[in-house]
Simulated assay, not measured.
Amino acid sequence: MPTQFHAPSLVNQILDSFWEFENHQSIYSEISMVYIEVTSREVGLKFICGNVNFSISYFPKDTGTVIKCFSNEKTLENQNFLDIAFQDLKFIFAIQKCPIPNFDLRFEESDSSDFVGNSLNILIANLESTILKTEHFLMDLDNQIDALKILPFIDPGFIEKITFINRIKSDDKKVLKIEKIEKLEQWGRAKSVDVIGFR
Rank of each mutant, 00 (worst) to 15 (best):
E109W: 00
E160G: 12
I100S: 04
E30G: 11
S40R: 07
R167P: 02
A94T: 10
P152G: 02
F5Y: 09
P8F: 00
K149H: 01
A94N: 12
V11P: 06
K149N: 08
S119M: 01
L15W: 15
T65C: 15
Q13P: 06
A85V: 06
A190E: 02
K97I: 11
N12C: 14
F164A: 06
I196L: 14
V52Q: 13
L76Q: 08
K61Y: 09
F21R: 14
I154W: 02
I48T: 09
G44F: 00
L82G: 02
C98P: 00
I162L: 15
P152F: 07
D171G: 13
D171C: 06
H24D: 15
F103P: 03
Q87K: 12
M1I: 10
L176V: 03
S113R: 08
R167V: 06
D83H: 09
S192E: 15
K68G: 04
Y58P: 08
N51Y: 04
L176K: 06
H24R: 11
W19K: 15
E128P: 00
N51T: 10
I178N: 04
E77M: 11
I145M: 06
I67V: 14
G188S: 13
I48M: 03
E135I: 03
Q144K: 02
K68P: 01
F198E: 08
F91W: 15
S129P: 02
Q144Y: 02
S170Y: 00
I178Y: 08
D172M: 07
G50N: 05
K68A: 09
D62P: 06
L10G: 13
D16I: 13
L123W: 03
L82V: 00
R199F: 04
T65G: 11
D172V: 13
A125I: 00
V38D: 03
S29D: 12
I56W: 06
I56L: 03
S71V: 09
V43E: 07
I84C: 14
S110I: 11
E185N: 10
L184K: 10
Q13D: 15
T3V: 07
L10N: 14
I31S: 05
V43N: 04
S17W: 02
L10M: 10
R41P: 00
E109Q: 11
Q79S: 12
D142N: 11
N53T: 14
S113N: 13
C69A: 15
N72H: 13
D104H: 05
S170T: 13
P152M: 04
K174N: 11
D62I: 08
F198C: 08
Q13K: 15
I56Y: 02
